[in-house]
Write a protein that binds this DNA or RNA. Structure first.
Length: 494
RNA sequence: GCCGCGUUCGUCUAGGGGUUUAGGACGCUGCCCUUUCACGGCAGUAGCACGGGUUCGAAUCCCGUACGCGGUACCA
């Protein structure tokens, strides 16, 4: 039982779930499922001032959209709940008291001003990184310096206090990270971390350790920004008499301009930052997942495309890279195109239909299915079926500038000759073969290349210089529409 | 500043002492296919941060430097 894999994704509901968080969730999920383990969602809402309404819902929705179903979490109770830290407050209190009793933590009464003063004073006297530590705590207001009766009196009077971790003066803290190997820190570089805040809530550090232990988490897989606070966590495990879970610190997702990919940077660089943005911008979730998996990990062979199930099969922590990975939006788009191409038109249909509706058109299913089939090889996003295939639903009002370049001097003559030819075709003879044959006859007769006919024809019928295979598109459009459009183009362009 | 982590093509990465003229993918360029647009195929482009060791031999091991990133809160 103790060797079963249990991992958790533990976001704070301080805003929408961002792409880095989603990747952390993904790696946790992959690891859990690879080992037939359990994937837990825990909401770390201990900072009431940063709590954002609706954030938890967004996290759950985003995970679901991505296909990362959690086994335990809010609304999905296992035997380790509750799964919101705000609902576990008593627990933390209890352990904080235990730490104090055992001499590993203490009460501190210093006000914010006093703390600032202390830091300022130290800085002025040449200490570049002032800390509340083994030395400085002796000149502060805490249960280590104050007489016991006074401490008790203050507590009784309801004076505000925090509980701080009593970090040893000199100790080397060493632990093994699954991704980085052995890492070691000196305790003298550590702050006497606040464990319990004056509002009674635990800080991340206490809550995290307590919950990971109580929830029997076997592996902590989280972002690298946590690496430097891990020694504090190791101290806590030791003082509480618990075995620490295995640690794995993931490389950060970086912005193309350098630095951790932040909301601000992502925005200026045109990268969607929140999972919700990807949903709204209609990225394929399986493509996003595939892309994210490869951002900092690789299976070690030359493969690139894998479903979530395959990723589960392939994923191991030892193949996660150590250095930050720059977000490459073009590669994401490539993945998206790939997944779109592989999906059957039937599967895409409901979504494309919904988008069509948003654009004010309501095509028949058979017609839309044909369009999807025709355009699958050249769209990047689902909505491209409608936006780039606009001409399937309405006559081109104007002709794209790029397209017009393909309308040359003799084009009018050629296109009207073509028009004449296909006007003779019966409604049911309006097929790809016949339409192509008509072009061939023309090229022979007028002694011009195929492109000289097809290009301007494309412009006339679609208004675009690019697009799906022209003749099937024309067949789909039907004789009446095609003839009309060609006439109109001849009017406007010739 | 201090502490920690990292550094292979522009980007994501493979590689873990000889198998390497450093492999793949995205991007970009060219060609082929298609007498249209794509897809696809092929080819090209471009990299071991630097300096010292260790070794017969180093992208691979060690040390240093540089650079990057993270942390340094009663935020997570």
């Amino acid at each position: 039982m103790s060797d079963s894999v249990r991992v958790r994704f533990a976001p704070s509901p301080t805003g929408l779930l961002h792409i880095g968080g989603l990747r952390t969730a993904l790696y946790n999920y992959l690891f859990a499922k690879h080992h037939n383990g359990t994937f837990v969602l825990r909401i770390e809402d201990t900072d009431q001032s940063r709590y954002v309404e609706g954030a938890e819902e967004d996290i759950v929705d985003s995970l679901q959209w991505s296909g990362l179903d959690f086994d335990e979490g809010p609304g999905k109770d296992g035997e380790f709940g509750p799964y919101r830290q705000s609902e576990r407050q008593d627990l933390y209190q209890e352990y904080a008291e235990q730490l104090i009793e055992d001499g590993h933590a203490y009460y501190a009464f210093d006000t914010t001003e006093e703390l600032n003063d202390m830091r300022e004073r130290l800085e002025k006297s040449g200490n570049p990184s002032p800390k509340y530590d083994a030395v400085t705590r002796m000149s502060m207001q805490n249960s280590l310096t104050l007489p016991q009766e006074e401490v008790e009196q203050r507590l009784e009077d309801g004076e505000e206090y925090v509980v701080r971790l009593k970090v040893p003066r000199r100790e080397t803290i060493r632990f093994e990270d699954e991704i980085r190997g052995f890492v070691s820190f000196e305790s003298k570089g550590l702050d006497d971390q606040v464990l319990l805040k004056s509002d009674g809530m635990p800080t991340y550090h206490l809550a995290n350790v307590v919950d990971d232990h109580l929830m029997e988490i076997s592996h902590v897989i989280r972002g690298e920004e946590w690496l430097s606070s891990t020694p504090k966590h190791m101290l806590l495990y030791k003082y509480l008499g618990w075995e620490a879970p295995r640690m794995a610190h993931l490389p950060l997702i970086m912005s193309p301009s350098g630095g951790k990919l932040s909301k601000r940077k992502a925005e200026t660089e045109g990268i969607p930052i929140n999972a919700k943005d990807y949903r709204e911008q209609r990225y394929e979730p399986d493509a996003l997942v595939n892309f994210l998996a490869y951002l900092g990990w690789s299976p070690g062979d030359d493969t690139e495309i894998h479903s979530l199930e395959e990723l589960v099969e392939l994923f191991t922590l030892d193949r996660v890279s150590k250095s930050g990975a720059v977000f490459n939006h073009k590669k994401l788009l490539w993945y998206n195109e790939n997944y779109l191409r592989e999906k059957p038109a039937e599967e895409l249909y409901p979504r494309v239909q919904a988008i069509a509706k948003e654009h004010g058109v309501n095509p028949e299913k058979e017609y839309l299915l044909n369009i999807i089939e025709l355009m699958k090889d050249r769209v990047s996003k689902v909505e491209d079926f409608i936006t780039q295939g606009k001409f399937f639903f309405e006559d081109p009002e104007e002709y794209e500038e790029k397209a017009l370049k393909k309308w040359k001097d003799g084009s009018g003559e050629i296109v009207s000759a073509y028009l004449e030819k296909i006007s003779d075709l019966d409604e049911d003879a309006f097929t790809v073969d016949n339409l192509k044959a008509a072009v061939n006859e023309l090229t022979d007769k007028m002694d011009v290349g195929f492109g000289k006919v097809a290009m301007p024809l494309r412009v006339a019928v679609t208004g675009q210089g690019f697009g799906p295979d022209l003749f099937p598109a024309i067949e789909l459009l039907g004789k009446e529409t095609t003839v009309e459009r060609i006439k109109k183009a001849l009017d406007k362009l010739a």
